[in-house]
Amino acid sequence: MTEEIIIAGFGGQGVLSMGKILAYSGVMQNQEVTWMPSYGPEMRGGTANVTVIVSDERISSPIVHEYDTAIILNQQSMDKFEKTVKPGGILLFDPNGITHPPKRTDIKIYAIEGVEEATRMGNPKTFNMIVLGAYLKLKPVVKTENVEKGLRKSLPERHHKLIPMNIDAIKLGMEKVKEFSM
């Protein structure tokens, strides 16, 4: 199994940390992982993306030109990455702020109302975990218990009290993800 994922959105949405938690979770179940951020003059409000690869085998290139899954969280990223999903692959997006929804017919498209659900949960910071949950429902590359272990490993101890809330957000995302049709 090799899963090549791009997560793309605004800086400050938790794109890089979502990728990091996914990568940590892969490590927790003895898989090979790479986490390659777009680095540079990114800032809150600018665009940010990260390529995460989780595999049972040695990973050749941390940089790929097409993805099994694209998780897209703003319009700029939709414009850039919709075309990079492999035929038969998955595009998961949050419709919030998307003016031109995806049009491809050779891939599977799913939506998660991450912003809306996070607001309903009363904590906008759970947004990225809701999206991660939606993704894990579609592609259970890592087990939820390993995500919990991954969170434990990647978060400083003072934030460990927030782990149950994050797990709840993941479960909510798993429930709320739905197939997208125009």
Binding site: A23, V33, W35, I63
Partner: peptide
């Protein structure tokens, strides 16, 4: 370079 410098791996 920045690919190996910025990337996370095991």
């Amino acid at each position: 370079d920045g690919v190996i410098g910025q990337m996370m791996e095991k």
